[in-house]
Amino acid sequence: MNNTDRGIVKCELELLVNGKRQPVVIRSADTLLRVLREQLGLTGAKAGCENGDCGACTVIVSGTAVKSCLMLAIEARGSRITTIEGLEDAPIQQAFIDHFAFQCGFCTSGFIMNCQALIDRHPDANEAVITEWLRSNICRCTSYEEIRKAIHAVIDRE
């Protein structure tokens, strides 16, 4: 906590994003989504609804899937942030390609990050768990079945 009775309105800090310490200057009111996109140029997390509904902005924060539109950047101090740009040839990425698990692609990075968190957390996830996790994201092109197949392709292989 500050030594003064004033809180932080604006500050310079380092965020650990995709394994790199990234200096940023933020307002306390800045969401993680805005800082990732506008200061760090990581535009894989999409600004869809910015209301926590669509999941297009999903990133992984210290192992947990989070909608970055509903997290202040300042809350992410000291956490490990992984965005779609931080995945390198992850099996789920190839599985999305193999199973045509997207059409327009706007929701894809959010879906992939949620799927990656799911696979990390539940490498043997059953159908009920997969269904539950997939409810967090919306694909208006309705690629849900293909996305489900992509998850199964990774889980069944592993």
Partner: peptide, 17 residues
Amino acid sequence: MISFDFEYFKPATVEEA
């Protein structure tokens, strides 16, 4: 985007909060 500023505190104890 949140269009206004606010102060952010992260206290370590209930009393501080």
